[in-house]
Design a protein around this nucleic acid. Structure first.
Lengths: 354, 354
DNA sequence: CGACCGAGGTTATACGTAAAACCACCACCG
DNA sequence: CGGTGGTGGTTTTACGTATAACCTCGGTCG
């Protein structure tokens, strides 16, 4: 008597409630097709060229179709010692940028038959959070954003191939890094604004301590050195949301001294907040002050005027990250990659006045 | 000679590049602790009360800690014939609502040690899309939004426990359903607007063929019957994005005849578009026309004026869906659940004029 | 005093798959 | 005619875990 017969099914307590029809195994298929289990495995794995006759192979495929056979992936993973599953670690999926990174990664993964698991958003997990415990099956590799700071230590401890996003290519202790060309984006924004005659800039910085935002600050200073007469006002870093952006911009716009004519914001959310602050203070966008964002979230075209912003290729970041991981897993040490960004000029920037 | 010794490791091609340190197995722990593998399994599975002495149990735990032992989940899943993994099927994670549903589901799942897998967004998957093939490991149950229409047929074919979101509780062929109280939300919006003196309404409908939007339309008509003198203008359903909402609202606001004073939109994105259309036409919000949304996306407070909207409990939907699924898996046929919604009054609605 | 029992283990087995090793058969060649 | 190699399979084993079944050893009780 087999154990399965004894225990009687997968979910004994609900047996019958929703009939789980005892999935067919490769052995069932073999029996139905009159071959051995090994032959089924060869045919299903597409490794039968020259090992199995066309007649038999077709018989196996027919039987598999008939029985609705699907390989048990837990068994396959156990046998092969790998899972074809990558773990994607991002700070929060409710951040549209990372949702799009995920979409890109999932697409690239799907093409290769690889699965993507998400590190549960830290805020939802208690003190016992553990990326490897929560990942259902084992993980072959990890793709992580440097913004997911509180998870990084755990990740390195795993000893798995690690691809970092938004991370310093030089300093990152990773198998590979993938970044949008942030510095270039900043140069494009500044070039655009200088061309419009702006000379008094304010930087609405995000209070996130990660490479991608540090680069914005550095690149902004560097780009402004091209115009010796330009001045740059720094603001207290603001949390990455609209309200914080509004508050920060309000302070800038009501401060003593000559008012900046261009607000360069680290993110579209801050830029949206800045527009809001301006309107409430009776400062018009873009005629009195120009506002630029970063990322090109859907929010950028929801507000009025629409935001001039630097479009970050979120999907491409996810795709490239996944490809880099797969390259590393395949033995190709795939170093650092940088993805092009694009300045999108919309209604929130215009010619400088005053 | 064992097979492992012969093949020489998990990723032979990159052996050394990133040392995969050959994870410890329960047998390794057993050897280190001087007990049998079965004992390790009992201790790690917390099933040792009365079967293993406290001394031995502690020795096992120490050895496990020392070796960094983590159970191989593929093996466990194979043995147990289940995966403690649920598949979440949503149309797109780039839709903030569903991202929040996911977050809620992941939280509820994490508390119970259950994993959440996502159905890869259909747009990213080729013709060979198959939720069960792409799910890395087998799946115990499915939570699906009715908006993911193109996946539904595949899902039912799986024969797995299925919890439906945004789905007609009566007609849904599912183990359980979870819905926000949409109709009640509509009643609250209409009550709010009627109280402000509005009588000429327009409905900016979404062109998504799903229960949740059909309910909005029906409930709107029903709620307006409370005010016999109220009139309702229907618009051509618009795609679920800001631009489509803008275009639809433009048509409504420039149509012949008396202009509606209240635009009831099926979603915040449509409402944001409506506000944009109004501003461009010189129609002021809320003094000339009131606009209301649905969902309470982050976008609702990014635009100016902020949107009066019905807050849908996205996280709670995900949590309740996961709990319902776990109840079904546990044998409790957990029928239909409805979650309360909340009208959030902000700047886009005001007293009617004209 | 022999039967019984519970505590505290160990041994053996099964989950479903992939693939190495083996085997039978035939064709061909020197 | 003995060997050699290719073709088309089968047999067997291993992956790591959970648990049923079994074993041993004191103590207890009828």
């Amino acid at each position: 008597m087999t154990e399965r017969e004894k225990t009687g099914g997968r979910w004994p307590t609900v047996r019958g409630a929703h009939a789980t029809p005892a999935r067919a195994t490769s052995r069932d298929v073999a029996r139905a097709a009159g071959v051995s289990q090994a032959t089924v495995s060869l045919v299903m794995g597409d490794k039968w060229r020259g090992r199995v006759s066309e007649r038999r192979a077709e018989a196996v495929r027919a039987a598999a179709r008939e029985l609705g056979y699907r390989p048990n992936l837990a068994a396959r993973d156990l046998r092969l010692g790998r899972t074809r599953t990558a773990l994607l670690v991002v700070p929060a999926l409710t951040n549209e940028f990372f949702a799009r990174v995920y979409a890109g990664a999932a697409r690239a993964a799907g093409e290769q038959g690889v699965g993507v698991l998400l590190y549960p958003s830290p805020e939802g997990i208690g003190p016992a959070r553990d990326p490897f415990a929560s990942a259902r099956s084992a993980i072959d590799g990890v793709i992580a954003s440097s913004m997911a700071v509180d998870a990084l230590a755990d990740l390195r401890a795993g000893g798995l191939p690690l691809v970092m996003l938004d991370s310093d290519p030089a300093g990152a202790d990773a198998s590979a890094t993938v970044n949008p060309a942030i510095a270039d984006g900043v140069r494009q924004v500044v070039g655009h604004l200088l061309g419009l005659g702006h000379r008094r800039f304010a930087h609405l910085a995000a209070d996130v301590d990660s490479w991608t935002f540090r680069v914005r600050a550095r690149a902004l200073e560097a780009a402004l050195r091209a115009a010796p007469d330009a001045v740059l006002v720094r603001t207290e870093p603001a949390a990455l949301n609209v309200e914080a952006g509004r508050a920060a911009a309000e302070r800038v716009l009501t401060a003593a001294g000559p008012r900046p004519t261009a607000l360069v914001c680290d993110d579209d959310m801050l830029a949206a907040g800045a527009c809001k602050a301006a309107r409430r203070l009776g400062v018009r966008v873009p005629s009195d002050v120009s506002v630029t964002g970063f990322t090109d979230l859907s929010l950028a075209t929801a507000v009025d005027p629409e935001l001039t912003t630097v479009r970050l290729p979120a999907e491409a970041v996810g795709e490239a990250g996944m490809r880099a991981l797969m390259a590393v897993l395949g033995g190709v040490p795939d170093g650092a990659g940088e993805l092009p960004v694009e300045l999108v000029v919309r209604g929130s920037s215009g010619a400088a006045v005053g």
